[in-house]
Amino acid sequence: MTEIERTYTCAWCNTVSDGTALSCAGCGVSIDVRQTVTKSGWIEMPGRHDMAKIQIGNSHLQIEGEYVPVADFSLAEGDGVYFTHHVLLWMEPQIKVTSMGLKGAWKRLFAGMPLIMTQAAGPGHIAFSQDHSGELIALPIQPGAAIDVREHIFLAATSNTTYDWFSTNVWYTTRNGNERETHYPLGMFMDRFFAPTTPGLLLIHAAGNAFIRHLAPNETILVKPTALLFKDPSVQMHLHLEYPRGGRFSWGLFSTWYYRHIWLRLHGPGRVAIQSAYKHMEENGRNIVSYSPATQAQW
């Protein structure tokens, strides 16, 4: 009699494990709970057992706590992680900390992005957390694969993943008299993480709850720009503007939109993930005079 195969493919990170453990080996989410999928097709990030462990080469990661989870790395000799400023919680004194210079410093400076990444090398323990409640998401990156992450979401990544950034090309300009103001609903840049040869691990912190869905080729969905967490590079995005009837207030030469929607339209194929506690965008209601490629609708 042949033994029944018990492999399990994680719906969250696609890692295939032997199905005997309680947590996914790639991202640490519980596999002994029923997957929660909304009727609209969003998969809710499964809960994680407190103190869940993820093996990364010779090092491992333990995720501790549930309100504001902590990512506690046990780095082996020769292994390392890099991270942005302001997420370091504690570290052992023997951890070696250095800075990792980034290209395009001027542009990053003007875009309000961190100028340097900090890198930590083992052996030893080092731990990270964000400063608001939410979920900690571990994303394994397979060799040759990449993930695009909205700015300021990233927590830490293993040293075998490369870090790059690209212009979002999602913007619009408003005018008030002679004054023009350019807005970047997604931020000017997005982070891209790539694992060239060996599997890497990326950690991000979602505010509130996190949901993921797989878009089929040419399938589209509209999301609030600040709700986007990450996407596969195959997912294309552009601006979508919606103007409800009666959403504009005009008096003489003065006119302002007190009610309109600025969306991000995402085109499949690929994964997209969103967070439930997104920041509201500042909207000055002025007329939009130019914008990046966009679709529009009135209703």
Binding site: V97, S99, G101, L109, I116
Partner: peptide
């Protein structure tokens, strides 16, 4: 801990 970043001088971290 001072973290240097070439022309821009870098950043510091207190622990």
């Amino acid at each position: 801990q001072q973290l240097k970043s070439g022309f821009f001088g870098g950043s510091g971290m207190s622990l």
